[in-house]
Design a protein around this nucleic acid. Structure first.
Lengths: 343, 343
DNA sequence: GTGAAAGCGCTAACAA
DNA sequence: TTGTTAGCGCTTTCAC
């Protein structure tokens, strides 16, 4: 920077002003500075800038690269952060990089806030971190106190999914669980409640699973092997639903004629024309914006009280759901007060 | 750090030594320092450390989060870099973040080298960057001079794929192209050469496509609509192959009975049991290691001459390939000298 | 609009 | 083994 200043015959502080887009330097001078920098291949040193500046205006993002929805969120966070004048620092969790390591790196890089994308099992770490910087968790079911939470209305989303299937004549609707994944417990509860509200509590069945294709495929096999298979299945997320779909199709089960399938997330794969999955849409862009905003409120406006943002989740009907052809024979007139007589 | 030093009654430099794992401080003292730091919640400031240190020992990684193989590479790069004492800084390209922006960020963060994962269309930018720091491109077909390249032997990989299909009795083998994607031209050429070597040049057919499920699905539709469909298809990568598979299965075409399908990459989806795709394996871990090593050689050992590392690509036979049932009738005895009489 | 000077938190070279 | 010292490259008063 000294070199650039010397080259255009200015002081270093003038050049600094140019790079910060600060007022106090004419547009013509600005141009000259930029041109000189270009010529000698100068790049502003972020480390030095960070060190001297009071604030870094950096937001750390912690995520798993294998989670497609987290990736979608991360992409949107880039733009949301930029809009509020923040830079994004990515830190990925892998099998060899623990939550603690990834967060420590973020903190060491002077991030002023940390965004957690569907990550946050380690409550001890979270509490520590939250003491130092604002933490916003996206899609975390049970937040540690002091952490802001952004999630979609999973309960409502599953309600819509169940209602849609019921309207199509389905009664035997099973759910493939998300295990310990982000928001899995909320979705499971949403499913159970919805089934109960439709007087279908006795048909509610939660099949163990997780947020992966393979878990979905396994669950589908289990479903096909059962004596009274459901006529519709809701999977905890789209990847899981994809596994279900694939297993079903390979087994010769027609979707949606023989079985309806619903996913969750509306991630990219769901809308691929050859998948065309009925699913519950989470708006990644909206969630990203809300999360960045939550962090910015704490950082720029001094908010202290924790906030929980619940965004709408909405069913997107595509081609994997259809009318139930054959209502489960023994249950044409279900017994409302019934205990589990079927099992 | 001063505070920590004061707390244990040492000088700042002693604490610094502890944090750098440098010799010159007893294990007992070390413990005391670490404990004191824990108590007051101290984290070493990376910006300051970076600023003062001569070298940053940071490697920048540029990639697209939507490319599954790039994600796999990125994960392996974390461990490969750690093994050589480097830290990784991620920078993702998105629709709103150009190559230039992403690289500038990396450079501003004092990365000593840049790893490009299947990215590098903008030759101007690359040339500029390569002048400043070592650049290693993984899976880049036509490198700018001065850039190291790591790729797998795509030509050989496709050779194996074609040979495998030929051995199963296939002759009419089509290829779905990768468009302008990383290494696409190499794979295309590999396919064409292999077909020629098996005297199948007249059956060679390159269907336009790209590295996505949707391109694969579209290509499959086109194949099914053609008068003389092939009995086997090789897709430019696994995502594309997945699109093909799905389209075929939905159209009632049995794989591999009616049609064989081969992918490329052996990414995670290929080995999912319900996909179980025959594919050409690129060893992500090996490529990551080679790329980091290439950068480290320039950085630590002063290598100047560009290097090109070509790693073996190997066919992995799974369940999407099988014997050709019905050899193309008119071509039971192909005419070796034949011009394109069929078209 | 511009320049001089202080210092952000750390590391490295050296002295003790 | 430990302490002293001088910056790394930038931003930021404050005086001009």
């Amino acid at each position: 920077m000294r070199d650039v200043a010397a080259r255009v015959g200015l002081s270093q502080s003038a050049v600094s002003l140019v790079y910060r887009n600060a007022p106090g330097v004419g547009p013509e001078t600005r141009d000259r500075v930029l041109r000189a920098a270009e010529e000698i291949g100068y790049h502003r040193d972020n480390a030095a800038s960070l060190l001297r500046r009071g604030r870094s205006r950096q937001l750390g993002v912690l995520f798993r690269m294998r989670h497609p929805f987290a990736v979608e969120l991360a992409e949107h966070i880039y733009s949301a952060a930029e809009a509020l004048g923040y830079q994004v620092v990515l830190s990925a969790m892998t099998d060899t990089r623990s939550e603690r390591m990834a967060i420590d790196e973020l903190l060491g890089n002077r991030c002023e806030g940390v965004l957690l994308l569907g990550v946050g099992s380690d409550t001890d770490v979270l509490r520590d971190v939250a003491r130092r910087v604002p933490v916003v968790a996206i899609g975390l079911a049970s937040p540690t106190p002091g952490i802001d939470v952004v999630r979609s209305d999973d309960s409502r989303g599953l309600g819509e999914a169940v209602a849609h299937l019921v309207a199509l004549g389905h009664r035997r609707i099973s759910y493939i669980d998300g295990g310990g994944g982000p928001a899995a417990s909320l979705r499971r509860r949403g499913y159970r409640n919805a089934m109960r509200q439709h007087d279908l509590g006795e048909f509610a069945e939660v099949i163990p699973g997780e947020y992966t294709e393979i878990a979905g495929a396994r669950a589908a096999e289990q479903i096909l092997a059962s004596e009274q298979p459901p006529t519709a299945v809701i999977a905890a997320n789209d990847e899981c639903a994809l596994g279900v779909l694939d297993s079903l199709i390979r087994a010769g089960v027609k979707v949606p004629d023989d079985m309806s399938v619903v996913g969750y997330d509306d991630s990219r794969i769901a809308s691929l024309p050859f998948v065309d999955l009925t699913t519950v849409r989470q708006d990644a862009a909206m969630m990203a914006t809300a999360a960045v905003k939550a962090a910015a409120e704490r950082l720029d406006e001094g908010r202290r009280d924790p906030r929980s943002v619940v965004l709408p989740a909405k069913l997107v009907v595509r081609s994997t759901t259809g009318h139930a052809l054959v209502p489960a024979p023994a249950a044409a007139v279900p017994d409302p007060g019934g205990s589990a007589a079927q099992q």
